[in-house]
């Protein structure tokens, strides 16, 4: 067998090869070493083109991950003693290294809460963590967040607690069982939905923005309640506990989760505005730039704005100049 159809190769590369395809592939690569080399070379090229892990920020992120396993220098752990204060007890790694190491290897740190016996507490110290709960709900915890959830969910109690920022994909359960997130300033009640909630205990503002579905938001210290629609954000301030609802690009609020910035039918001006918010810089779009053209897709947020500009420059006909106090975007000559 000396030929193999492109369709089969394409399905193989995309991971959708059928049983018959696998048979054909086996016959093909068994026929000669050249065939074997041909197929695997194509596969290598296919993956090489989209290979990202040779980029510095990816390597650094992986190194941080490794470091947190081999050198867990210091960690916040819950005090096992009787003090009332449940947090902020700093232990040196030496004493707890063994225990901590095992836990990190499992995937994330979880310590039993002190206040209630059946809660599991998860810390995201210097890394974003993803947790999947027993009911299928997915939670991404931003750095510096603490999250508590019950060991077992009962039918009518899916109640969790957040001190920090988290992106929730709540699994819908038959029979309209509620999922409740409590925090210091606000409580959010949902059925099945996607939303981002930012409510650090130490902060004076708490906010929730809805990406999909419907959520019910309550201010903790006052009776304001509101049902949010997608694209809206509810904000509670500590000093007056009043709840305000604002229109927002809610997808933007979840960017920290995977660093992907989605945009739809956006002009260069729109994109510049997003980048201004993301990198806290002023971006000036030159007047003669074509604003009738719109773009859709994703931008990956990188450590430096310049790296994003370089990528953009490859897909959009622009040039950029970094000046002392701002970035200038000009049309490509």
């Amino acid at each position: 067998m000396n030929k193999i159809s492109d369709d089969i190769i394409w399905r193989y590369l995309q991971g959708t090869a059928t049983a018959e395809d696998m048979k054909a592939l086996n016959e093909y690569i068994s026929a000669s070493p050249e065939n074997k080399k041909y197929l695997f070379s194509i596969e290598e090229l296919y993956h090489l083109g989209k290979w990202k892990y040779d980029e510095e920020d990816k390597i650094n992120a992986a190194m941080q991950r490794l470091k947190s396993v081999v050198q867990p220098v210091e960690m916040f752990v819950v005090s096992e003693k009787k003090e009332k204060k449940p947090m902020k007890h700093l232990f040196l790694w030496t004493r707890y290294a063994a225990a901590v190491l095992v836990l990190v290897l499992i995937g994330w740190l979880s310590f039993k809460g002190l206040t209630s016996e059946d809660m599991i507490r998860v810390y995201a110290d210097n890394k974003i963590r993803k947790i999947e709960l027993a009911d299928g709900t997915k939670v991404w915890l931003n750095k510096g967040s603490v999250f508590e959830y019950p060991k077992t969910f009962t039918k009518d109690n899916r109640k969790v607690r957040l001190d920090g920022e988290a992106y929730f994909q709540v699994a819908r359960q038959a029979g309209k069982h509620k999922f409740t997130v409590e925090s210091k300033l606000m409580t959010v009640v949902v059925h099945g939905t996607i939303f981002n909630m930012k409510s650090y205990d130490k902060d004076t503002v708490a906010e929730t923005s809805l990406i999909e579905g419907e959520v019910f938001v309550e201010s903790v210290n006052d009776d304001s309640k509101i049902v949010l629609l997608p694209g809206q954000k509810a904000i509670v301030e500590k000093n007056n506990h009043k709840m305000v609802v604002k229109e927002t690009n809610s997808l933007m609020d979840g960017i920290w989760r995977n660093n992907m910035v989605p945009f739809q039918n956006a002009t260069i001006q729109d994109i510049a505005k997003v980048l201004e918010d993301l990198y806290h810089v002023e971006i000036e779009v030159r007047k003669d730039i074509d604003l009738t053209h719109t773009y859709s897709g994703m931008i990956e947020k990188k450590e430096k704005l310049e790296d994003v500009m370089k990528t953009l420059q490859n897909s959009i006909p622009i040039r950029y100049k970094i000046e002392s106090d701002k970035v200038l975007i000009e049309p490509m000559e």
């Binding site: 695997f40 596969e43 290598e44 993956h47 090489l48 290979w51 892990y53 040779d54 390597i59 992986a62 190194m63 490794l66 470091k67």
Partner: peptide, 18 residues
């Protein structure tokens, strides 16, 4: 140790991914 990681991570990961 970390130098080795920086130097070989991408290629090793590409290898493991294959």
């Amino acid at each position: 140790y970390y130098g080795l990681f920086k130097q070989h991570y991408s290629a090793l990961l590409f290898y493991a991914t294959r």
